[in-house]
Amino acid sequence: MTKADLIESVYLATGFSKKESAAIVELVFDLMKETLEAGEKIKIAGFGNFVVKDKASRRGRNPQTGNEIEISSRRILTFKPSQVLKTSINDN
């Protein structure tokens, strides 16, 4: 499934044109990206939470050469699925 399929389902379920449906779906993901970029988490009941986390720098190894390298501190996004989603995935 891709964004095109989501746009199609919005088009079929609403009275919006394909172009409008595409713009709306695009806007939903743009708003989510803006929010996460600002470091704010997103909680979607029944689906899951998108959480931005700060990771401290740590020592790692280049698995190919074995050389020890410093992995810089960074900010990452994690997704924590809701119990509802986890259950529905296992119910089939």
Partner: peptide, 15 residues
Amino acid sequence: GVVNLIFNGIGDALS
């Protein structure tokens, strides 16, 4: 309606 379609759609696909 659109927001629900999106997240339900993703959930159904994963199921």
